[in-house]
Design a protein around this nucleic acid. Structure first.
Lengths: 313, 313
DNA sequence: GTCATGTCTATAGTCGATAAAAGACAGGCG
DNA sequence: CGCCTGTCTTTTATCGACTATAGACATGAC
């Protein structure tokens, strides 16, 4: 039986919406609520029904008005609003982090299903999805093995990233003066400066800002395969960094300043400057990634071998 | 309940093996049969049991000997030896071909499941897998829409292919003289010449030879993302060509000669010659792909717009 | 000891059922 | 006529059951 997480999320969102209003106000028609909550009218109707039962709103026949403001207890617990997929995703990440999975190790789908209290099919689906990023592989017998995020993996990822992003950055100059990207670029620059204003409090926001910049740059290539790869890269970086938070603050600080230089170069439309800034930043990113891998491995007492980084050009 | 296609395939393979032998001969131990049929001993045991029941072999306690040679009727029908996944794949391809699916059209998973007489879950899994190649996409509501193989898709695919393959081809010269790739390259060249010897009969074999050459070249980059993309490209080309066989023979003939030039260039290790041959061949491949798309579309009475091909460099 | 076989257990593939959610349609109110 | 709502149908997400297959262990023959 499918979980009603969509309903619960919509319910909570709706409560948050009501909190912004005051007693006696109308909360709008079903259709418009459906649109603003991004769910179907069917779901909205369930939500409204519950709201009436709990005397938060009342329907006098011609309009629905707020009777009382919601209290914290009215909200569904956060955990219940997750889809099974999201739940598995979180637990799987924790599992990988805590168990220190080593490359080549087998992933036992059935055990995961027991551990996470979900059905085997759900695990199966999740692993299928997750395998797209290349960190696990399927054996002919059907079982999964962990590929592991090692130096080679990181190098190959960075090589392709560099090929694609240089290509995209070069094409960035082709955008017309009145194109929307320039506004988006400015907004991203402001987001960087905003992070720096109170860096201690805000540095955790960096990954989000990072992704938005690189996505914007890659959008210049107008190529779905390049964009897809960038999404993949985001996902992998996300996994890796959630597994390894050492030096996060320092490395992000460096990256922010490289980004600002990169952004300025893009705006200047100076091809040479763009290329220099791109190569420099991508190079640092590669080095930080590799360095954090080394630290991680050496922490586990493995021998770290330093293969010379392949140059992509 | 899962299908016993593995068993049936192993059974048929085993019969084929027995056909090569004669009455009275031993057919080997369970473990060795399991290895040669690439299945588990459990499956081999089921197969042997059936063979005994049907009096094809007999077990006198110390060895299993052939009693009679199999007749065509002993084999399981070909259709039953397909896995559900393979079955769906075939029917889905036919479906797409016959129904002339247009871009943007919705794929109804439930209808497919009824039409193909398989469970909805199986269709769901297949679509998930198939979506990896980018020809269908998932909407937030969970339904699937057909993206369609249009000019843009083909251009973007070819752009990335060109970026990757030029990179790989350039690196090909780095293989040592005694590396196994040179032998593989020679074998592929011989396969091309063999095709030409009796082209009328053998031209259908071209796609296979084509893939082996491009895979070999891409292996030079030693990058799992590049290799994965090449597999994807193979799949997409495979789909496209199975949907569109117009001029297949002629376009493959041209391609074979370009391949021979490409192979010679790789062997010469002349970077300039390699690049020229690669660019030339990839360019023709792009043009044939686009041309066949135009033909396909104009056949359906759509207007064909000729967007200028984006140069990747 | 080595290999083959019998037996048992664990895991994967597939299905069908069921509730949740989406979406279509028609009638009613302004 | 446009928008809102009640009702119904279709489709999706998830589960749990069931069988095929893989793999482990133990026993026995040579």
């Amino acid at each position: 039986m499918r979980s009603n997480d969509v309903y619960k999320r919509a319910f909570n969102d709706c409560l948050s919406h009501i909190e912004q209003l005051s007693v006696g106000e109308e909360i709008g028609a079903e259709a418009s609520l459906a649109r603003s909550l991004s769910v179907s009218r069917t779901t909205v109707r369930s939500v409204l029904e519950t709201l009436e039962e709990r005397r938060i709103i009342a329907d006098d026949g011609r309009s629905r008005r707020i009777v009382r403001l919601p209290i914290p207890n009215d909200f569904f617990p956060e955990a219940e609003t997750q889809s099974v997929h999201a739940l598995i995703e979180r637990r799987f990440m924790d599992f990988v982090l805590e168990e220190n999975i080593l490359p080549g190790q087998q992933v036992n789908a059935l055990e995961l299903s027991r551990r996470f209290s979900v059905s085997p099919s759900a695990i199966r689906e999740y692993l299928r999805d997750f395998s797209e990023c290349g960190l696990i592989e399927r054996r002919p017998s059907g079982s999964w093995i962990f590929v592991g995020f090692d130096r080679d993996f990181a190098q190959e990822l960075c090589d392709v990233r560099q090929i694609f992003e240089l290509e995209s950055a070069r094409r960035f100059v082709n955008f017309a003066d009145d194109d929307a990207v320039w506004g988006q670029l400015n907004a991203i620059e402001r987001a960087h400066l905003w992070l720096l204003e109170d860096y201690d409090a805000r540095h955790v926001e960096f990954p989000h800002v990072d992704n938005s910049l690189h996505s914007l740059i890659n959008s210049a290539s107008k190529n779905r395969f390049i964009n897809r790869f960038d999404n993949l890269r985001c996902l992998i970086f996300h996994c890796h960094y959630s597994w390894n938070k050492v030096d996060e603050k320092e490395r992000n600080f460096v990256a922010i300043h490289e980004h600002l230089r990169y952004i300025a170069a893009l705006r200047s439309r100076d091809k040479r400057a763009i290329e220099d800034a791109a190569i420099f930043h991508l190079g640092t990113a590669r080095q930080t990634l590799l360095a954090s891998l080394d630290r991680r491995h050496s922490r586990h007492g493995e021998k770290v071998e330093h293969t010379p980084g392949l140059s992509v050009c």
